[in-house]
C-alpha cells in the first residue's frame, strides 16, 4: 500500500544565502496491507521528513512514493486531496483546528468531508470520544483549551474515526496515560486486522513492540554529513 524507492530530498534556503541541505537520499521501504511498520533512527535522522513526504506536504525531489496506487511525486493537488479524503489518514502530533469549533465537530469532520450525513457522523464521533475517555461535558467545547493529553486523544479520535486503508501515525502514544495508551494500541490492532497499512513513529519502545511487525531504520537514508 506504501511503496517508496530511490527517494531524495533537499531543502534550498533562498533567504539564507541559498544554502542547500540534503536531508535524505536513497530512501526505500514498503508497507503491505495489514502490516504496521515503525520508522526508527536518532532525532534529526529524517523520520518526520519521510512521513511528511508520504503525506504530501513535503515535496519529493527524486525517486517514487506510491500510496494506494497513487504516485505522489509531482502529483496534482487534486490527486493528493482525493487520496487524503478517502485513502490516507494521518495522526499528527499537533492538533490544528479552527478556534471555537466544538470537539464533536472536529472529530466528525473527516466523515462529513466524505459525504456521510451529520447524525451518523456525530454518532460515530461520540462513540470514538467515549472510547478515548474524553469526558462528555467537553464534547461541546473547542479542544484548543484542552490539556496536551486531551488534545492528543481528540487528534487520535479524528484520525481513527474513518477506516483508512493507509495510516501514518506520528507518536500516537506520546503524552498518554497507561489506560489511554492501551486504547490506542487496540485501535491500531483493529486497524491492522481490517487490513490497514500503517507506518508510524513510536518513541515508546513498548508500544512499538506491541503493535509493529518490523522496523525501518532511516539512518541509512541520511546523506553523509560531510557532503552537506
Amino acid at each position: 500500500m506504501i511503496e517508496i524507492s530511490g527517494v531524495a530530498k533537499r531543502f534550498v534556503l533562498h533567504n539564507q544565502g541559498g544554502v542547500v541541505l540534503p536531508v535524505m537520499e536513497g530512501a526505500a521501504l514498503s508497507v503491505q496491507a495489514g502490516e504496521c511498520v515503525a520508522l526508527v533512527g536518532a532525532s534529526g535522522a529524517g523520520k518526520s521528513t519521510l512521513m511528511r513526504m508520504i503525506w504530501g506536504n513535503y515535496r519529493c525531489d527524486e525517486g517514487s512514493i506510491r500510496v494506494a496506487g497513487v504516485e505522489l511525486r509531482d502529483a496534482e493537488p487534486r490527486a493528493v486531496i482525493a487520496l487524503r479524503r478517502s485513502k490516507l489518514g494521518y495522526v499528527s502530533q499537533f492538533l490544528r483546528v479552527i478556534p471555537r469549533v466544538p470537539t464533536l465537530d472536529v472529530v466528525a469532520e473527516p466523515l462529513l468531508a466524505q459525504g456521510m450525513d451529520e447524525a451518523q457522523a456525530q454518532a460515530r464521533a461520540r462513540a470514538m470520544l467515549a472510547r478515548l475517555n474524553i469526558p462528555e461535558r467537553l464534547w461541546s467545547l473547542s479542544p484548543t483549551t484542552f490539556s496536551g493529553g486531551e488534545q492528543q486523544r481528540v487528534n487520535i479520535a479524528r484520525g481513527f474515526i474513518q477506516d483508512w486503508p493507509v495510516m501514518l501515525l506520528d507518536e500516537p502514544t506520546a503524552s498518554l496515560d497507561a489506560g489511554n495508551r492501551a486504547v490506542v494500541l487496540d485501535l491500531i490492532r483493529e486497524a491492522k486486522a481490517r487490513g490497514a497499512a500503517i507506518l508510524g513513529i513510536f518513541h515508546d519502545a513498548e508500544a512499538r513492540a506491541a503493535v509493529c511487525d518490523r522496523e525501518v531504520d532511516v539512518t541509512g537514508f541520511t546523506p553523509a554529513r560531510n557532503a552537506a
Binding site: F11, H14, N15, R52, N57, Y58
Partner: peptide
C-alpha cells in the same frame, strides 16, 4: 497543495 506550499515552500519569496 496548500500545506505543501506553506510547509515546504520552494520559491525564495514564498520562503520569506
Amino acid at each position: 497543495l496548500t500545506d505543501q506550499v506553506l510547509d515546504d515552500p520552494q520559491d525564495a519569496y514564498t520562503q520569506l
